[in-house]
């Protein structure tokens, strides 16, 4: 991906992807107007966002053909990103006892 002739072939693709991203933005907004149930709405919106994100990464950031060191570094990042995303799960889902829903806040304070 270095020759100027090679680049010329890509120009059209960049505009196309730009247009596709705008279309997807439209779709997200339109989907939002349907007032889907929250879990479904989140799924739809995230799928569209992931699609858009991958398009930016693959084409604009040339990730579709990159060197192995970059893939390696990103793979590592993705793994730890997933670990990081498990933090909410760890915090919320597994606790000892039942959470205290405070009716009278007077007893919960520190000193």
């Amino acid at each position: 991906m270095s020759d100027s002739a090679d680049i010329k072939n890509h120009l059209g693709k960049y505009w196309m992807i730009g247009a596709a991203l705008l279309v997807f933005t439209g779709i997200t907004v339109a989907a939002n107007q349907l007032h889907l149930a929250v879990p479904l709405a989140i799924t739809v919106a995230l799928i569209i966002a992931i699609t858009k994100g991958s398009m930016v990464a693959a084409v604009f950031m040339h990730l579709s053909h990159e060197k192995k060191w970059i893939y390696g570094a990103l793979l590592l990042t993705v793994v730890f990103f997933i670990v990081l995303m498990s933090v909410p799960f760890l915090t919320v889902n597994d606790g000892i006892g039942t959470p205290i829903h405070v009716p009278a806040p007077a007893h919960t304070g520190g000193h």
Binding site: N32, V38, A41, A45, A49, G53, V56
Partner: peptide
């Protein structure tokens, strides 16, 4: 610079639905 800029764009692509739509 471009790689950085696309990344900033990419973050917004996620911020938009997360904050504005959902």
């Amino acid at each position: 610079t471009g790689l950085y800029w696309h990344f900033v764009d990419l973050v917004w692509i996620f911020l938009f639905p997360v904050l504005y739509l959902l």
